[in-house]
Design a binder for these strands. Structure first.
Length: 293
DNA sequence: GTGTTTGTTATCAA
DNA sequence: CTTGATAACAAACA
């Protein structure tokens, strides 16, 4: 459920604390999370610094000081990066008061969902936690990186690349539902189930509409809605439905501002009609049957 | 024990 | 080639 605003919130947090930090050691607790294997990870990363942190869609891209080395990180549904100053690794015994730091990371760090730990020379540490183990870290060279970006990621919201011309031409060619098309990272990078539902609500478009059936006016409205909801969520540090945390273990604040996602059976804020929940493109899909046409 | 949840990829059938 | 459906991955939760 981390989508563009959540991953970008995390990226900005990490950028503040990790740049030029040297990795002194690496703990690979769950081997399958480190896609190239534990030995390769240590060989490539220990003794190196993090030079920059970029993002494409939901993918984080760490540039490593070793020439031609990049570390990709995908959170999938439940991945977290949590950063701790100093070497204050925490082992249980703390109060789990709702909303405090220890509650947010399951009481301790590392915890049972910690997969990989980056230890830095200054005593700080970065924990990659992932309850469901779908997330991964992967080391690639520039050639591989470029290939991945080219093949899997389309234009991003809030950039001129997501233009009216582009979206009009792309939507026209597809016979799939607009929901399925917007979830496709190759068409728009960074949207997921939450923001697709929200953007379709804001633009008044039913999720089951065929992509090719959208009128020019609707596409204009859709682009506006996508940019608007992403920008607003960024401002509120993303949505925490359950697992998302920023680099300090804090939840995102956009959750309470969601208009339809997670609101099945509740009243539409616009018209009072009951928000429907159905399955579209294999995903739980929330919409207002009156406000969306 | 069952169904649901989700990002992404794989597989299969039409 | 395109699409939709389904499974897979894993674990928690109702």
């Amino acid at each position: 459920m981390p989508e563009l605003p959540e991953v970008e919130t995390l990226r900005l947090d990490l950028e503040k604390v990790l740049l030029d930090k040297e990795i002194i050691s690496l703990d690979v607790l769950t081997v399958k999370t480190a896609k190239n294997g534990a030995a390769f990870f240590k060989k490539k990363l220990v003794g190196q610094k993090i030079k920059s942190i970029a993002r494409k869609g939901k993918l984080l891209i760490f540039e490593i000081s070793r020439p031609d080395t990049f570390l990709l990180a995908h959170l999938k549904m439940t991945g977290q990066f949590i950063y701790l100053e100093n070497d204050k690794k925490i082992v249980g015994g703390h109060s789990l008061k709702e909303g405090n730091f220890f509650e947010s990371v399951g009481g301790s760090l590392p915890n049972k969902h910690t997969r990989i730990i980056f230890n830095f020379v200054d005593g700080s540490a970065l924990f990659f936690n992932d309850l469901r183990k779908f997330g991964y870290l992967k080391i690639v060279d520039r050639k591989e990186l470029n290939l991945i970006l080219l093949n899997n990621y389309g234009p991003e919201p809030l950039t001129p690349d997501l233009s009216l011309d582009y979206l009009r031409e792309t939507l026209k060619k597809r016979a799939r539902t607009i929901k399925a098309v917007l979830l496709d990272q190759r068409i728009v990078a960074g949207l997921g189930n939450i923001y697709v539902d929200e953007a379709l609500f804001l633009s008044g478009i039913l999720p089951e509409r065929k992509s090719s059936s959208l009128k020019l006016k609707e596409i204009i409205s859709l682009i506006k809605a996508i940019n608007q909801v992403i920008a607003l969520s960024l401002k509120h540090r993303g949505t925490t439905f359950k697992d998302f945390r920023d680099a300090k273990g804090n939840k995102g604040n956009f959750s309470k501002l969601l208009k339809v996602y997670g609101r099945g059976g509740k009243k539409c804020y616009n018209c009072g009609t009951e928000i429907k929940k159905i399955k579209v493109a294999g995903r739980g899909t929330h919409y207002c049957p009156i406000c969306q046409k």
